[in-house]
């Protein structure tokens, strides 16, 4: 069943609250949108409504962490990461054990337009030493990452979530390998084969990439799709192995290609002398705008249809 990753996050947080009394949650007047409201209703004494004051919320969360709490602080991705200096000093440099939750990622939010879209948040967070950066592709993966962030991760981490529903992609029986790229298509277990193209996607664009790969198959093009739930640490090892299986790699993200997933892959490929060509699909140094999410995905070349068209054209030209 399709579900927004913010919804899965909210449900998971409320559940983890039962077994982890150290969890406290802060929100800046968006708890109904970030879905931290589920936790707030269940554990009112451990929920801090901070009002429309994100910078203060970040500092307060760090202070709470220094007394042994595990704070989750929630807002839209653009609003949280926009208070960069506070994250940089009070959280990252201080190695505060906090979880920054940024919902409403990308142009996928649609109607509300640019000012509400997290489009540079990965870039900003990835540049901070000690900061982990995670983005689930569906509800199940959100739960798995939440589990990991509560039980294992130490230090600050940023979790990027969608407003819109995403299709279920994570196989129920697949064990979670934190910070590793995961093969989504073809299903692992199928005989390893050379691919005409390897797509690496993250978050909402994984589903688009899978759909694109299905369409390409009908044209006789073999496309593998891999999911990056961790932008930092980034799985360079698997990326370099994949680079040996194809002549074309394509990254797909609902985020600026400057500093996002495309950069993660480009930075990795650049460390070896021979590597495949890389096409970075995503927001190309542009601002967002209001519109239907599907139209915006098409416009920015990250819809299944646009991805398919672009890859078919590239392979034809080779």
């Amino acid at each position: 069943m399709a579900k927004a990753t913010r919804q899965a996050f909210g449900e998971s947080l409320a559940k983890l609250g039962e077994t982890h009394p150290e969890i406290v949650v802060l929100d800046a007047d968006l708890s109904k949108s970030t879905k931290s409201e589920f936790f707030a209703k269940k554990f009112p004494a451990r929920f801090y409504e901070m009002g429309i004051s994100e910078a203060n919320m970040i500092g307060v969360a760090s202070g709470l962490a220094f007394t042994g709490k595990l704070p989750f602080l929630c807002s839209f991705g653009c609003f949280i990461t926009g208070r960069y200096d506070t994250i940089r000093l009070s959280a990252a440099y201080s190695q505060a054990n906090i979880r920054l939750i940024g919902t409403h990622a990308g142009v996928g939010i649609g109607d509300d337009g640019h000012s509400q879209m997290g489009l540079e948040d990965i870039t900003l967070m990835r540049a901070l030493p000690t900061m982990g950066v995670f983005q689930p592709m569906d509800a199940r993966e959100t739960e798995l990452i939440m589990d990991y962030l509560v039980k294992e991760w130490k230090g600050p981490a940023y979790l990027r979530l969608t407003r819109q529903n995403l299709p279920d992609l994570y196989p129920q029986d697949r064990p979670f390998e934190p910070c590793k790229l995961m093969q989504v298509r073809p299903q692992p277990g199928a005989a390893p084969q050379k691919s005409d193209v390897v797509l690496i996607a993250s978050g909402a664009t994984v589903g688009e990439s899978v759909a694109a790969a299905e369409k390409l198959k009908s044209q006789g093009i073999q496309a593998a799709v891999w999911n990056a739930h961790s932008l930092k640490p980034f799985d360079s090892e698997t990326t370099l192995k994949l680079a040996q299986t194809t002549r074309l790699m394509v990254t797909v993200e609902d985020h600026s290609v400057i500093g996002g997933l495309g950069s993660c892959v480009a930075e990795t490929l650049a460390t070896v002398s021979q590597h495949p060509r890389l096409i970075m699909l995503g927001i190309q140094d542009q601002f967002g705008e209001s519109g239907e999410p599907a139209d915006l995905y098409e416009k920015h070349g990250i819809s299944a249809h646009a991805i398919e068209k672009r890859i078919a054209a590239e392979l034809k030209a080779q």
Binding site: Y48, A55, N56, M57, I58, G59, V60, A61, S62, G63, L64, A65, F66, T67, G68, K69, P71, D85, T86, R88, L89, S90, Y93, S94
Partner: peptide
Amino acid sequence: STGSLGQGLSVAQGMAMG
């Protein structure tokens, strides 16, 4: 950790809450 001004009171407050 301080030095970018204006941040310490929020951190102090978080500690006081905790």
